[in-house]
Amino acid sequence: MPLIACPACGHQISIEAVACPQCGHPNRPAPPSPAPQTGPKCCLCPAPATTRCQGCNMFCCPRHVQSIYVQHNQGGANELRCPSCYESAMNWKIFGFVFAAIVAVIMLALITGIASR
């Protein structure tokens, strides 16, 4: 096994030695410290994101997502939405209810108009 001189005391040590047995000087460089985990950050705060908004795919933390039932083609599902997408989905829900109410009033007016003739 090859020997090298210790940089601190000059004593001959093995290249496999972790430290010099004479003075304790480390023979190997310290392993690099692991880099901090850098994952996605929330779109609204510096907290780590744990989910994506299902409307716009922005990363969000649990504090900034809200669940809302969203109608799809043949049904619907609860989705996690960021505040802006949640507000948009709520506006569409309100629009749908208002539209249905207007259609119901028109239908009722037509039915009562036909019945009174």
Rank of each mutant, 00 (worst) to 15 (best):
I114V: 15
P36E: 14
F59T: 13
V65M: 13
S116F: 08
G96T: 11
F59R: 05
P2K: 06
G76E: 05
A100I: 15
C43H: 14
N27R: 00
I15G: 02
W92L: 13
P31Q: 15
S116A: 08
A49N: 02
A47H: 10
H64A: 01
M107H: 03
F97D: 08
A115Q: 09
P36K: 11
P34F: 06
P83W: 14
P83A: 05
P48S: 04
A19Y: 11
V65H: 06
P48T: 03
A104G: 14
G113S: 14
P83I: 09
G75C: 06
S14F: 08
I4W: 02
I94G: 01
A19K: 07
A104N: 06
P21A: 02
I111N: 03
I13K: 00
P26Q: 01
Y86M: 06
A5I: 02
A77Q: 14
Y86D: 13
S67Y: 04
C60Q: 14
P32T: 04
C6P: 00
A8W: 11
A30H: 12
C43L: 12
A104E: 07
C23F: 12
C53A: 08
G24E: 00
T38F: 08
T50S: 14
P21V: 09
I15T: 04
I102C: 14
S33F: 13
C6W: 02
P46N: 08
P26S: 01
C45W: 12
K93S: 01
E16K: 11
C6S: 01
N91Q: 15
P36G: 04
G10D: 01
N78E: 11
I94Y: 10
C85W: 11
G113Y: 12
G39T: 10
A19T: 15
M58A: 15
F59Y: 15
A100R: 10
S88P: 00
C82M: 03
M107L: 13
C61A: 03
V18T: 15
Y69K: 02
P34M: 06
G96S: 13
L44A: 06
G113A: 12
H72S: 13
L108R: 00
V70M: 08
L44C: 02
S116M: 12
Y86G: 04
Y69W: 15
S14G: 12
Q54D: 15
M58H: 14
N57R: 07
P36H: 08
L3I: 07
G75I: 15
R81D: 07
P36M: 07
H25S: 03
C53H: 09
C82P: 04
G55C: 08
V70H: 13
P2L: 08
L108I: 13
L108Q: 06
E16Y: 14
I114G: 04
A8D: 12
F97Y: 15
G76N: 04
T112G: 01
P21T: 04
I114S: 07
A8T: 09
S84I: 12
E16Q: 15
I15Y: 03
A49D: 01
